[in-house]
Design a protein around this nucleic acid. Structure first.
Length: 310
DNA sequence: GTTGAGCGTT
């Protein structure tokens, strides 16, 4: 029968549900419609900890042992495809735009609270702690209860100390005291994350940069949906893209706009750790620095900066 | 003392 199968682009990413066919197989074309370039599917076998490939025949992907179960699958891409997604591939004459930069590891490897849905009414925080400890160190366990009666609401929250545990835990369903429970990323955080991921902080802006000019410049990398420049002038701006990957890819880079070197970083609120978007050397300017004069050469890298004329 | 998709008193 037809069902929805959860597939993620990479193991540590949010899955997307793709529909299977009536006979239970998943069409490669269906997969590729959501994951362009995908050539297969794999999943992590909880028993061995290794990735397991899914059988592909005549354009159809077959459920392992006849059942997709509730696993999260990972799309597989051809080698060349993944290589092109990596940065700095300039071996082939033409310049690959910086947009292809994939550098998601930084803020996606941080643990987040996870919601546990479908708990038995009788399950306590101790029960959860015992059960989920098998995946790794737990930093927090909560069962949400009615404050008056103390009765469980049937869901709770957990947090792991390390990201691998979180991934392992989220990649399967859980049977707790005879009930099937789901562990997911809470909606609240998902939404916040989505918004944050789409927005970048552009530091060292100069006063002569207009919102229109920034929009025009950044549109080269992907659809810009918003540009915010605080008034009065504060030497920074926020640029929001339609595609979070575009925003992520630009983070940590320096770009030359109207002759000035601006620094792009994640649009995290102040006091948020913003050191992991710095690349390699510390030889980068800070907001307030004098802008080093740079030669404008179309589409060429000067040091760590991409120099592009407007 | 009942329930079964959802989203967190601080």
């Amino acid at each position: 029968m037809s069902e929805y199968i959860r597939v993620a682009e990479e193991e540590d990413e949010e899955p997307m549900e793709v529909p299977s066919e009536e006979d239970g197989t998943l069409l490669l074309s269906t997969l590729a419609a959501q994951f362009p370039g995908a050539c297969g599917l794999k999943y992590r076998n909880p028993d061995t900890g290794t990735m397991r490939g899914i059988r592909l025949s005549d354009g159809r992907l077959y459920p392992p042992d006849g059942d997709w179960e509730n696993r999260i699958y990972v799309a597989v891409f051809p080698r060349s495809h993944t290589e092109n997604r990596k940065k700095g591939d300039q071996s082939e004459g033409e310049q690959i735009p910086v947009v292809t930069t994939i550098k998601k590891r930084t803020d996606r490897q941080k643990c987040s609270d996870l919601i546990v849905l479908g708990l038995p009414w009788k399950s306590t925080e101790d029960d959860l702690k015992k059960y989920f400890s098998q995946f790794g160190e737990l930093l927090m366990v909560q069962v949400k209860k009615d404050p008056k009666t103390g009765q469980s609401k049937g869901f709770g929250f957990i947090r792991f100390g390390d990201y691998e545990s979180q991934i392992k835990c989220m990649s399967q369903r859980h049977n707790i005291d005879g009930r099937w429970c789901d562990v997911r990323i809470p909606n609240s955080r998902e939404g916040a994350q989505q918004m944050m991921n789409r927005k970048v902080f552009v530091g060292r802006c100069t006063e002569d940069m207009t919102a229109e000019e920034l929009r025009f410049y950044f549109n080269k990398f992907g659809e810009v949906v918003d540009v915010f420049i605080p008034k009065p002038f504060r030497a920074f701006a926020f640029v929001t893209f339609a595609d979070p990957d575009v925003a992520q890819g630009l983070c940590g880079e320096d770009h030359i706009i109207k002759g000035a070197s601006v620094h792009i970083s994640s649009a995290a609120p102040k006091s948020y750790d913003r050191q992991n978007d710095r690349k390699g050397s510390m030889a980068q300017g800070q907001p307030g620095d004098i802008h080093k004069p740079m030669v404008k050469v179309p589409g060429v890298r000067v040091g760590d900066a991409l120099v592009t004329p407007m």
